[in-house]
């Protein structure tokens, strides 16, 4: 499969601080990738760099062969990147439906399609962003990224701080998006085993550099690597 998104020797950070150092990996069309690592190793910074919210200090980011490093965040979205931020970033003064329709673009993912994926959002379509639970906000953040009809979906800790039952529901939806819909995605997640089960490949970051790249299935079985870089044992 052709590589859709490629990071080549990307260094980036905030202000003068450098967080990512020469990070390189590629994502193929229809491929789902888990981006793993301990806290503070640069997972969120990687996604923020792809969407254009950090200061890129070096390297190239290619989307469909085109370098997007100089584009503004809105141009990167236009080029085909959908971003689900860590803190969800719901617009509080907009209703559920307005949050979605504000950004919707023509394509397979319509208002009805995201309501089909998250029926709870349709039930709460007239509620404002600040009236939603954490799980509903996360569903809305994913729905809002989907209606952009992106080529690549970036999900930053989509299950963080949510009840187990909601986590299950969200993981099922993400599984559907990447497995059934075949959307290319990078998922940053603390629950490594759960996300390895629904992704094809995994990249582990350590102190701002790529420490491991391999198939998700292989990593899931490699307790030594999991223990060394993620601090988790076989039962986690």
């Amino acid at each position: 499969m052709a590589e859709l998104l490629v990071l080549e020797q990307v260094s980036a950070g905030y202000g003068r601080a450098t967080v990512l150092q020469q990070v390189s990996f590629g994502l193929c069309e229809g491929e789902a990738m888990a981006l793993l690592g301990r806290n503070g190793v640069g997972k969120t910074t990687t996604l923020n760099t792809v969407i254009g919210l950090t200061r890129q200090q070096g390297g190239r980011i290619l989307l469909g062969g085109q370098d997007i490093a100089r584009l503004s965040p809105e141009r990167r979205v236009e080029a085909g990147i959908g971003w689900v931020p860590q803190e969800r970033g719901i617009f509080r003064s907009l209703t559920v439906e307005e949050n979605i329709t504000a950004v919707a673009r023509p394509g397979r993912w319509t208002l009805e399609a995201v309501y089909g994926l998250f029926p709870r959002l349709e039930e709460r379509r007239r509620n404002f962003g600040n009236q939603l639970s954490g799980g509903e906000q996360q569903m809305l953040a994913i729905a809002r990224a989907l209606v952009l009809n992106p080529k690549v979906l970036l999900l930053d800790e989509p299950t963080e701080g949510l009840a187990p039952i909601i986590v299950e529901e969200l993981l099922a939806a993400i599984r559907w998006i990447v497995r059934e819909e075949g959307m290319a995605a990078i998922v940053v997640e603390q629950h490594a085993r759960q996300i390895l089960a629904i992704t094809d490949r995994a990249v582990i970051l350590d102190r701002g550099t790529v420490a491991y790249t391999g198939a998700s299935g292989t990593l899931a079985a490699d307790t030594a690597v999991l223990g060394r870089f993620l601090g988790i044992g076989g039962e986690d």
């Binding site: 919210l53 809105e74 950004v103």
Partner: peptide, 19 residues
Amino acid sequence: YSLRAIRDNPLRASAVGIP
């Protein structure tokens, strides 16, 4: 709607594709 999103948070609005 996008105007209200910009009013809420311009940077975030940009990152979800609002010009």
